[in-house]
Design a protein around this nucleic acid. Structure first.
Lengths: 195, 195
DNA sequence: AGGGTTAGGAACCGATCGGTACAAAACACA
DNA sequence: TGTGTTTTGTACCGATCGGTTCCTAACCCT
């Protein structure tokens, strides 16, 4: 019994996420945000609280969609061995770089650097996502059953840092050769259990 | 035959660099910048052109001071073997994290993520710094003489991405255990030549 | 001591920031 | 076809953005 929305809030959130992902929190002005979301101010402030809130919401959304997807892939036995899954993940990143010249990087990684995170709710959300990724790598390694608990933990963390490192270099526009070299080093780390 | 400056431009630049390093380009408002530099607007615009210019200048300064220092350390035979120097560098990072709870990260790494870089002069400067680091790692590895040219190149790149990854995690406030684990993985990469 | 020259500081600028108020428009229901 | 309810667009808000102007203060040199 009222006028219906003319836009899909989920779609709008995705577009907002895309902008924050690309340029960060501060650099995304409200005007740009509205342009990206293809709605006007009235609709924005009726549907969402404010800029800060929708930023936090996009972090949650990234966690729910992207991170969950990655974690799911890393921990899915149907995708092959733990090592194969980890390399598969890195391969996907390299592919995006090579084919589309993708330079977005990883929203989580970008947001960690973005000062907007510090101290508030955002920081907790980011920490949680980092932890989810770490344990996903850990589980993938454990699934292969060749590493001690402590070695698996260590390796998972090394892989995690290599992952973020690659994502940083992606932002810098690394060549596909460089991506391939980085990944070959990850392979080397993964060979640890099978020596 | 005129009134002398009351501040040291180099010191002021260092303070500006510190702020950009901490919060990035966009997040650092001119007001904050002036407060950090401890000068007023008049002096600022007399001594430097504008905000963009001083940002670029701080990138140069970081290159001249910090990156050069790091490259110097990595390539100095007096600091031990190539491997020892690389581990020494990572050790310094871990130490800063453990002792001071340092969460600044690496200015280069932060700036790579910062969208302020894209497309302009800044991007070239950043690419150049990344390349300097990569070749410094490469030279350190070659100094030990146990790796083929191509293996040294690959390993250098893997180390570089691990380095940036650690710096990202540093921004996230990683524990000293996690830092230690990451570094142990770097050790593992370095053992490649000596197997 | 006085004149020339530059630094310092504050007032001011238009533009843009994130956010609010409110009236017109569009629908559901009667 | 009204009527009530919600969305939408726009005008507007004070605050702050980066940057300029210009007057005064401070110094060097004669």
């Amino acid at each position: 019994m009222a006028r219906p929305r003319e836009f899909d809030p989920d779609e709008a959130m995705d577009k907002a996420m895309g902008l924050f992902w690309d340029v960060g929190y501060e650099e995304a002005s409200l005007t740009e945000l509205l342009a990206a979301m293809e709605i006007t101010k009235g609709s924005f402030y009726k549907a969402f609280q404010d800029k800060q809130s929708i930023y936090l919401a996009t972090l949650d959304r990234y966690n729910d969609k992207v991170i969950s997807g990655t974690v799911g892939y890393l921990t899915d036995p149907a995708e092959g061995s733990g090592r194969a899954r980890i390399l598969g993940l890195f391969g996907k990143v390299a592919e995006a770089v090579a084919q589309d010249g993708d330079r977005l990087g990883c929203f989580l990684c970008n947001a960690l650097i973005d000062k907007a995170a510090e101290g508030g709710e955002a920081e907790d959300k980011l920490q949680a996502m980092v932890h989810r990724l770490e344990t996903a790598f850990h589980r993938a390694l454990k699934d292969d059953g060749q590493l001690q608990e402590s070695d698996a933990r260590e390796t998972a963390r090394g892989i995690l840092s290599a992952y973020f490192g690659l994502r940083v270099l992606e932002r810098a526009g690394l060549s596909r050769e460089m991506a391939a070299d980085c990944i070959r080093q990850v392979e080397w780390l993964l060979e640890r259990g099978s020596r």
